[in-house]
Design a protein around this nucleic acid. Structure first.
Lengths: 235, 235
DNA sequence: CGGGCAATTGAGTGATGTCAACGAGGGTGG
DNA sequence: CCACCCTCGTTGACATCACTCAATTGCCCG
């Protein structure tokens, strides 16, 4: 499902995020959470929605036997906590020390009811989120290990330094284990793929938790399968 | 992102679907499409939203080199075509001869603006869809081939015969290739997994395109990793 | 009856998971 | 301040699951 709100077709996604953040700031309150804190767990009643102001969150789901899939990492500007049935079906934890705007679900619904612009913005954000999830599905279903990691780094790189033509550098707030659980592969495979990307010259790692990209476009192209997948990572 | 609309917290997802379908029927028009027809392609302007009344649709995304990921199959009651930026980023085609309610995007937005209940219902449907996609992410990222197929058949079985305790039977409107592209595995692996489930007694196949489940709960349990994955399919 | 497509099955290969060892960094306690 | 330990990341060796290539069967349709 993809959705357009023609009402504010001129508005950017960023505008929608700001709209949500402004409403949350006005009608809700702000909390600070330390690294590792849970925001909510699977099964908790969904009483609040959250706008990330600072830091990063990790949303995940577990299988009975402990396998974990990370569904997304939430960065500043993103909204989380909407549930279709009043209950959370994911775990949400703080990666980095985080600042969140908290808006009780009921109040959110009331405001959205009174203000079509907010409902519209929220719908737009939901559509954007679904689009991102579709990319994640393609990644997990079709891409090789090295393409998955390239996609992930390109995604983060795009967030970090959208327009800059030169080097794009950013920190990784999550562990290799988290990356593995996001990309559907083992820690060891993440590490090996990282090494291959480094050797191929597509990424530079000043520290294990810091990434520098000399050519984001090349990395993105590789991640999207422009080069025949098997041939490229012979390097 | 999970979202609750407390406004109509008592309303079921089905109610939301009916609400959307009713609005689409009142303000839009109805079309019939033959098997194999495209509804829209990646890159097309998102001018309309669609409610599936009859038949089944296939939403997919392609990589440059032809790899295809099927994002979802849409069945009666589901709404598709919402886009975050006015453009479709998926291909949508008809699996079965289908009947769709078509509602121009602009008119949808206008109605949603005037009627908070519709906006609320749509947001609810979006949250449900995100929940389903999360399940798909877990499937692709964490499950073995046989667990993936079991999950898929259990999902369809749940749709087909929700409450019935006895046998649940249904037709598969899609090919093995489609199933493979949905589950992120090759046709051959789909076929082998199907054979293993059949031999294990979890499914019965009167015809290749018809499935009968004697114990939906057992299949679901297996699909969710209740039994240690490797041990179970020794049978 | 013959052709073509879909599904299944077999054989062999290859990518990724598992198990294990090693080194680096950071925190704690002596 | 230093020593120790624990965790994280990396790398190697090996096992295994799933993919590729290939052949066969059955069905639908001409």
């Amino acid at each position: 499902m993809d959705v357009t709100c023609d009402l504010n077709a001129q508005a950017t996604i960023e505008d929608c995020r700001r709209e949500m953040a402004a409403q949350a700031a006005r009608h809700g309150h702000t909390i600070h959470l330390a690294q590792g804190s849970p925001v909510y767990f699977n099964g908790d009643p969904a009483r609040e929605v959250y706008c990330v102001q600072k830091g990063a969150l990790r949303l995940s789901r577990l299988l009975c036997d402990g396998r974990r899939q990370i569904l997304s990492f939430a960065f500043p500007g993103e909204v989380i906590g909407l549930a279709h049935d009043g209950t959370h079906h994911t775990d949400c934890e703080v990666l980095n020390d985080a600042v969140l705007s908290v808006l009780p679900t009921g109040r959110f619904a009331a405001i959205a009811h009174a203000d079509p612009a907010l409902a519209s913005a929220m719908l737009r954000l939901a559509a954007q989120e679904m689009h991102d999830m579709q990319g994640h599905l393609v990644l997990l279903g079709q891409k090789s290990a090295i393409e998955r990691l390239a996609s992930f780094l390109a995604l983060l790189g795009g967030r970090a330094g959208a327009a800059s033509a030169g080097w794009v550098c950013f920190d990784l707030p999550m562990s290799r284990t988290d990356i593995g659980d996001y990309l559907g592969m083992s820690v060891e495979t993440v590490s090996r793929a990282m090494t291959r990307l480094r050797v191929a010259g597509l990424v530079h790692l000043p520290r294990p938790d810091r990434v520098c990209l000399s050519d984001l476009a090349a990395l993105t192209g590789f991640a999207e399968g422009e080069a025949p997948a098997p041939a490229r990572y012979a390097a």
